[in-house]
Design a protein around this nucleic acid. Structure first.
Lengths: 186, 186
DNA sequence: TACGTGATGACATCACGTGTCATCACGAGC
DNA sequence: GCTCGTGATGACACGTGATGTCATCACGTA
């Protein structure tokens, strides 16, 4: 038998989300989280840089984007690379998790600080995509525009996907959004 | 003679920026700022919600956007409304302030927390534009895409504008960026 | 058996941010 | 000219977030 129960990080994440739902993010203190998880305050900050990070841990989407842009066939058009990437990301990290992601979005929406962190995560993705395209020889301004477009398509469609009453897949909504975007800015 | 020297808010802003440049944002404490401004810590938080806000105060760009979309001629195409709006915003708040905005960008870039706040300000602009277009009868998804596009054009071009060695105006760079965007996603 | 390693606990400390009450200048109204 | 409301500030206390530092203990390895 170990001195400590394993899975400290996971227990902290679960306890935190439970408490955020029960009493709100701001009203939840780190000692409350660690008490429920059976750990100390100091240990919480060894696993998470700050209180918000417990909701955003383990998000490797920027890394996925970097790899997929690297490995895309050399001749592929950038928009093709983006759509293939979005197809892979949505399948791996979004489809089938709609209820869980709705709960998470509700928590994030309830607190401006969490909203800020969420936006920074999106910005990390933007940076990764932009750097990836620049590595393929695309000029910085064009790479930035492509990255912004990819992130816009993903998250505008993400909200639509969570809000819709039906069961359209996220990638379908993204493809329609791209069509609507082309028409809107023409 | 007043009991207090006037312009408390302005003095706090100046002292804060000086200290951020001298010793960095994180290393600067609120008591240091208020000591230089001749005020107390408590007064600082009466003028600014938190330490970061001292760099982002008085930014009424979302309000400008709301008004301009409201007052735009009914028959105008959304992209025309956006370009007219960007023309007005850049003239009022950007052109002629390049050096000052470069200093500010350098401070914001140096700290992840400031970067987060900056992204939230951009998000407020997004929300204002999206709401404005919805009020004109445009459906939510299309309004969101237009808002994202407008903000993308402004800030991608803003970085280009600050980085360029020459003197191209911001609105010129924005117009070129729109052309490049249309071509990139076609 | 001894030792290095890694995760955790225990404790101290600082800065951020807020609630609360007192203080004082200014202007409105009588 | 007096009183009183208003608004900005000072003064003080305090909870919480976040970090540095050292001790502790299980485990694996030689």
């Amino acid at each position: 038998m170990s001195r400590w129960r394993p899975g400290a990080r996971e227990r902290l994440e679960e306890a935190a989300i439970e408490l955020f739902v029960e009493q709100g993010f701001a009203a939840t203190t780190v000692p409350q989280i660690t008490a429920r998880a059976g750990l100390t305050t100091r240990t919480f900050f060894r696993h998470f840089a700050d209180k918000r990070e417990v909701l955003f841990g383990g998000d490797e989407i920027p890394g996925m984007a970097t790899r997929m842009i690297e490995q895309a066939p050399a001749g592929d058009d950038p928009m093709t690379v983006i759509l293939d990437g979005l197809r892979a990301v949505t399948a791996a990290r979004f489809e089938g998790r709609r209820d869980e992601l709705r709960v998470r979005r509700e928590i994030v929406r309830s607190d401006p600080g969490l909203r800020e962190r969420d936006l920074r995560k999106r910005d990390s993705l933007r940076l990764a995509i932009s750097a990836g395209f620049q590595a393929r020889g695309i000029d910085p301004l064009r790479a930035a525009l492509l990255a912004e477009t990819a992130v816009m398509l993903l998250f505008v469609s993400f909200d639509e996907w969570l809000d819709q009453p039906g069961d359209r897949t996220l990638i379908t909504i993204i493809e329609d959004a791209l069509t609507a975007l082309r028409q809107a800015i023409a």
